[in-house]
Write a protein that binds this DNA or RNA. Structure first.
Lengths: 329, 329
DNA sequence: CTGTTAGCGCGTTCAG
DNA sequence: CTGAACGCGCTAACAG
């Protein structure tokens, strides 16, 4: 420690003033503080963390970063973490299981105090996450959740959100409502599909498998499906899309075919992405409380961090969605 | 080290096999590797970094995260860093100088090997960044650059981008082109304004100060300025906005007033944000090579990291923009 | 081929 | 009020 030598003090004395301990004479204290400031002295967190086995770092792993969904969630998470004195470290898995596993190792190597994760759409094996449990490092899932692990989770009520959206379409007089669903391996896709079906059922509208298309969220494929739907003998008069990018893409395609939205066909999305309010026609969609998701997840995580491993709780917080009605319906 | 004791080996032997050193018998090597795998052993990067004085962490500080600009840049940066074996740690300053300074300290405390930064619009004092220079930690600026520090920078040719956009407007027959400029404290705002003026000059169009409004990028204020412009005795027939969010907001307001775009008034933005292609009318804008900006910045930074402090170079890379013509002109 | 030692920067004893 | 000694997990230098 430079400043100890400079002032002819013991390292422990310097350490004491820097950590705010009492029992240091005002004189030496002032001297240390002054020199520290002069030298732009910053404690070495590596050493502190190594010593204390606590880094105050929280890892966040998300599948992607290009839609506005995850950035928004992260903003909420980062803010909540900061308030609690934690740093956040993120990485994106690019929807690749391999990358997710690799990112996971990096987090481990960097000794994060806990991680927040939203799974890849590929992820089926959870060994890389169970390591955290074994090592006593808490995990919290959000959005893309793992059902076979008993840990805290933050999700939204996808079933209800979808139900409300479809019910609204029905009440607006739509008769043939198609659903562009996501991969059924994703919990959210399944729940949204269920909500869709339940709404139809409630109003005695038969479920037509022809109108339900599940796809892998590869946005370029939306074109194929929408054109297919519009070419049906009895085409839909509404499309409920599993998410906003899908809905936005569908709108572009429908417009290109010269159909009028919403007169001839209505479109509803899910998530209320940034662009949804700006496109023409603006998109009716199911809004999720994005930064609240991030904040809640961080809160659950920090609770776990502060709990003894044996007292870990596996609560699942289900946040509410809100139907935002715009011009596309 | 658990695995040393378990196998009755010296720590150094274990370390040797884990670091891939030679001179270890195949027998002990295999034993160590096996146990390591079984225990999900991960090296403690904290200890390694503390010891080697190198963390392989790069800090990235951006002013915000909500537009699509910075997330896209970060995607490029993160990918380039990963390929070079570096991790990235980011934080957002929320356009607040105070927060920027605080984030800077955190990076320092965490011993990053270098930082990438895009300044706050408030930042006028650079002492917090000069600390990095003094400590021998390289900095690279991108986008929001500090002119008084001689370090590597990555920018785009804002002057030329603006010039091309305005020239295009003129060639399309526009006579009164307004400019919604950013704060002149920001280099980019100044250069875009200069490009705007130069284009007018080239075609002998007088510069009308009434048509130039510089504002603080507080998006809610765009309404005031656009309405002001449209209420002028001789209103503009085109608006060149300093960035896409401003242009998009302007379009909404113009549409509300019932004016036809582009027939009655044209609008051009800058940056090609995600939403720009989706709104109606789609926005003509000056595209920046976002992920290339991130990648280039990381490359410059890593070069600096690998150079001796005395050999630091202060190159400024100027990337080209591209005018993307859509429906709003 | 293997073991021992020292030190990275810090906080935390235990002794004065 | 202050100092000396130890250890966090790891690597490197120096012995065998």
């Amino acid at each position: 420690m430079d400043i100890a030598r400079e002032l002819n003090l013991s390292k422990s004395t310097v350490s004491r003033v820097l950590t705010g301990h009492p029992n240091v004479s005002k004189h030496t204290k002032d001297a240390v503080l002054e020199l520290a400031k002069k030298l732009d002295y910053q404690k070495n967190m590596l050493a502190i963390s190594l010593n204390s086995k606590k880094t105050y770092n929280i890892g966040i792993i998300v599948p992607e970063f290009s839609s506005s969904y995850f950035p928004q969630v992260i903003i909420g998470a980062q803010e909540a973490a900061r308030q609690a004195g934690y740093n956040t470290v993120f990485s994106q898995s690019n929807e690749s299981y391999q990358t997710e596993v690799a990112n996971t190792k990096v987090m481990l190597a960097n000794q994060v105090d806990g991680i927040l994760i939203s799974l890849t759409k590929e992820t089926q094996n959870y060994d890389h996450l169970k390591i955290f449990e074994r090592k006593g490092i808490p995990i919290v899932f959000f959005n893309r959740v793992c059902s076979e692990m008993s840990v805290p989770k933050v999700i939204v009520d996808d079933y209800e959100g979808a139900f409300n959206a479809v019910e609204y379409l029905i009440k607006s007089g739509r008769k043939r409502i198609a659903h562009l669903a996501g991969p059924l391996s994703l919990r959210v896709s399944g729940h949204r599909l269920d909500g869709y079906k339940a709404a139809l059922k409630k109003y005695d509208i038969p479920i037509d498998q022809e109108l339900i298309i599940s796809y892998d969220l590869e946005i370029s494929k939306v074109k194929i499906y929408v054109n297919h739907l519009l070419n049906l003998e009895s085409p839909p008069d509404a499309i409920f899309a599993v998410n906003d990018p899908t809905a936005i893409e569908a709108i572009q395609i429908i417009k290109k075919r010269g159909l009028k939205i919403p007169q001839e066909i209505a479109v509803v999305g899910f998530s209320n992405d940034y662009a949804s309010a700006l496109i023409a026609p603006s998109l009716t969609t199911v809004a999720q409380p994005l930064s609240e998701i991030g904040r809640t997840a961080i809160e659950l995580l920090i609770e776990q961090i502060n709990r003894d491993v044996n007292d870990w709780k596996a609560v699942t917080k289900v946040l509410k969605t809100e139907l935002i009605i715009r011009e596309s319906t």
